[in-house]
Design a protein around this nucleic acid. Structure first.
Lengths: 341, 341
DNA sequence: CAGATATTGTCTTGCGCAGGACAATTTACA
DNA sequence: TGTAAATTGTCCTGCGCAAGACAATATCTG
């Protein structure tokens, strides 16, 4: 099935009664084009519904104007924010966004170049955990393939990056929980292949150490950043005889899972058990009680990262590292430690 | 910034010591190519990391191998399912998926052709409410631009479509609520610009009429398919003196909002008030109590719709209309009417 | 081994556009 | 009005690949 024939630059030239070269000059913002001519060409183009064939432009310019957004299925909310940010930046640009969801980033790390080349991408936005994958970074770097990293936590010099300070954020959340009187604080860690998992853990330990509170290693559970994993981990924690008074989940999906586990066990969240999350994704305001969390500017990071990538492709100046601010958002899932008033 | 030069078909021909034509024949599965030759070319291509330049192929074939997924910001869960389905179908294909989120589909309906042409798309998957937008359908049809419709509820002959029977599903849910003893059933409608909103409403009314139960129009609230709108609508409903005993929200996000409203008012969901949703999106299992809902095969529809689109583009046979089954999923957000045992 | 068939090669064109080199024409300015 | 500067036009090449026409070999069959 074929769409009807598109107008070409030749048609526009004929319609406007000017040379092809002139049409080309108008569409490429060449200098020394009179306003009159510009208008005439524009009108002819409009009447023919002409748009430059971006494929042909790509062939000439050895570029496709296609950017890839590479991600491994984390929570839907995170993905949607990433996409919103990237797409917003590309509004009105020639660049278009291709989505590249993968099951496991590490599984295709070796073939990352084949992956981006066969899709004819100009550049790629890497999100966690791909943004920390040494093989991916190495392959792309040595091939000189343009990329930007969103929220990496390791290898600071491996490429332009947009980050938040995961450790500091986790520290702040932990301090908040401590201030509420909590001492037996459990942690549900995220996917171990995401280095941010370790960064958040580090922040937690630092805050605990600063107050001379011992971390009960038995209360550190492994999760996978997904709802179910958080629910299961919380269930194990809450069934312990020495139940923690607070659970710090490393993202909101797992925190929501923890809240679900508490409900299922008949525990009152906030009164019997405090639950904190991380990310401030949409789910944090959709469960009851609403989740105390760290607001991460995922949208902003994605938009800024895309901006950096475009700048790189256009040989424009760009920042090499941008740190985006986080903030603690207190809601109703956390409260003072039980037994106090 | 430029990536390092890619190998071309010429390089492969030289490396393999064969003609360019032969390389071309191998990569395009031409007949009459010996296995020996095929292998020699493959090896040369591998050693050079050669991939056919899809942009050049596109120029020759007057196609871009780019498909668009067009959607208006409904719930993140719905979007993610759509994308998963579409991407899954394109695994291993030359086609790539471009995401086209828009604020309001109706706002760009007039320019839909400019939209798809400037992005050089080969075809487009329309999702609600765009899949029902008469202007969009008209423009695309008269231009002969390939598209598929996901879950439209109107204009059955306006193009290939993958649907579920919204009315029947709503009927089944309503019957279920009636069977639980509910009579005062409120409805939170979805975005009025989505025709599925009316289809679901129709199913509701039919089920009520079949049991001779009068629909209390005061209990029909307008929502927008989003969490907040559901929460606000439910708040209004629950503060009425003649509170309904059940709320049927037309999607899960709004149902989750309704549950939130109930929590905030200190009402026990299922015991004091039943809440039903629609879609069976991820959120339905993430709030407490878990939401009784209609399972819609969004993933399957998106995958099948993409399959149809590809078939259209390849001039292969394809179905013109496929109906995908729904199913009632009972969870804990619904229960017998209060006051009974 | 001759003729038929299968395979590989040569040559050419064109997809739609960008942009260099330079000539022709128009416009601006003194 | 004359000359310089600005604008528009002509001509041409090439981006990487597909595919048609057809010639040159290679392989198979009886």
């Amino acid at each position: 099935m074929q769409a009807s024939r598109r107008a070409t630059i030749i048609d526009v030239a004929r319609e406007a009664g000017v040379s092809i070269k002139t049409v080309s000059r108008v569409f490429n913002d060449a200098p020394n084009v009179s306003a009159k001519m510009r208008q005439r060409v524009q009108e002819a183009a409009n009447s023919l519904h002409y748009h430059p064939n971006i494929v042909a432009q790509g062939l000439v310019g050895r570029r496709s104007y296609l950017l890839g957004l590479f991600y491994e299925n984390p929570s839907p909310n995170y993905v949607v924010e990433l996409q919103r940010g990237a797409v917003e930046r590309l509004q009105g640009e020639r660049y278009r966004l291709i989505v590249l969801p993968v099951e496991k980033a590490s599984a295709i790390a070796d073939n990352i170049l084949a992956y981006v080349r066969s899709a004819a991408l100009d550049g790629i936005v890497l999100t966690p955990p791909a943004s920390d994958n040494p093989v991916i970074l190495e392959r792309l770097s040595e091939a000189g393939f343009p990329f930007v990293r969103v929220a990496p936590t390791t290898a600071p010099d491996a490429g332009p990056r947009h980050v938040t300070d995961d450790a500091a954020a986790a520290r702040e959340m932990t301090e908040y929980l401590i201030a509420l009187g909590h001492r037996r604080i459990a942690v549900i860690k995220g996917d171990p292949s995401h280095p941010s998992t370790e960064a958040r853990m580090r922040g937690f330990r630092e805050a605990m150490a600063a107050r001379d509170i011992e971390v009960a290693e038995a209360l550190v559970e492994q999760g996978m950043f997904q709802f179910d994993s958080g629910q299961r981990a919380a269930q194990r924690l809450l069934e312990r005889p020495d139940r923690p008074t607070a659970i710090f989940a490393q993202n909101d999906d797992m925190a929501a899972g923890a809240i679900m586990a508490a409900h299922d066990l008949g525990l009152k969240v906030s009164e019997d058990i405090s639950v904190a999350g991380f990310d401030d994704s949409a789910i944090a305001r959709m469960v009851w009680p609403r989740i105390t969390t760290i607001h991460q500017p995922v949208f902003d990071m994605a938009r800024a990262a895309t901006d950096t990538l475009v700048a790189m492709l256009e040989d424009a100046p760009h920042e090499d590292a941008v740190e985006h601010p986080f903030s603690l958002v207190t809601r109703q899932s956390t409260g003072p430690v039980p037994g106090t008033s």
